[in-house]
Design a binder for these strands. Structure first.
Lengths: 101, 101
DNA sequence: GACATATTTGCACAAATGTGCAATTAATAA
DNA sequence: TTATTAATTGCACATTTGTGCAAATATGTC
């Protein structure tokens, strides 16, 4: 892993590594359909503006996908991407055991 | 995922989600044998005290295993645990797609 | 148009975080 | 014992981060 890859991965993990943000992700985990910010506010007891900022952070990190329709903005988990990134890191950590041997 | 589980997972991800710490983890990834802090200093250009603190953070998060021998302290990746945690999260994020359907 | 609802942004602030340097502790070697 | 090496800790500091509130923006409805 080169520095650029490390940095990119760190951004993803950092975005996930905060309680309220991870709560939002878990909430979206259980949702079949995209959810708007108002609905997501319920899962963590902070101001709507805070949720808005967390959702932005998660979106920028490639964790959520945003869909605008009217005055609502619906967020959904980018399940494929996040799972791929996490598994990729898991594989590196585990498999290099063999590579180094 | 209940709040306690979310908090625990967040701690792990937060520990991994910092450039220098992830660099240390990647370095240890490539090592077959445990490494002491001096050796690990080389992979990120910060003071030894900073490396020491990062190693402590990673150890507390269950990412590294510490082995003391004499004045040296050798660190190694807890490959099994980290990979397990990352895969577990990946599975939750991906599989709940089906669960919700 | 006026108004209501959904979301973001500006501002302020406290707390957490990453960092370097100097001093300290711990263990070995002379 | 003294000196050396490995690692941690205390202190200070700048930066980042998470937060709430109020104001602004954007879109829909009357």
């Amino acid at each position: 892993m080169n520095p650029a890859e490390i940095e990119e991965t760190a951004i993803l993990l950092k975005a996930l590594g905060e309680f309220n943000r991870l709560s939002l992700v878990c909430k979206l985990c259980e949702c079949k359909t995209p959810q708007n910010a108002m609905c997501l506010c319920e899962c963590c007891s902070v101001d709507a503006s805070v949720v808005s900022r967390h959702l932005k952070t998660l979106t920028q990190a490639g964790i959520l996908k945003l869909e605008k329709k009217g005055r609502e903005r619906s967020y959904s988990l980018d399940r494929v991407n996040v799972a791929k990134e996490l598994r990729s890191l898991a594989a590196k950590i585990e498999a290099s055991d063999l590579a180094a041997a």
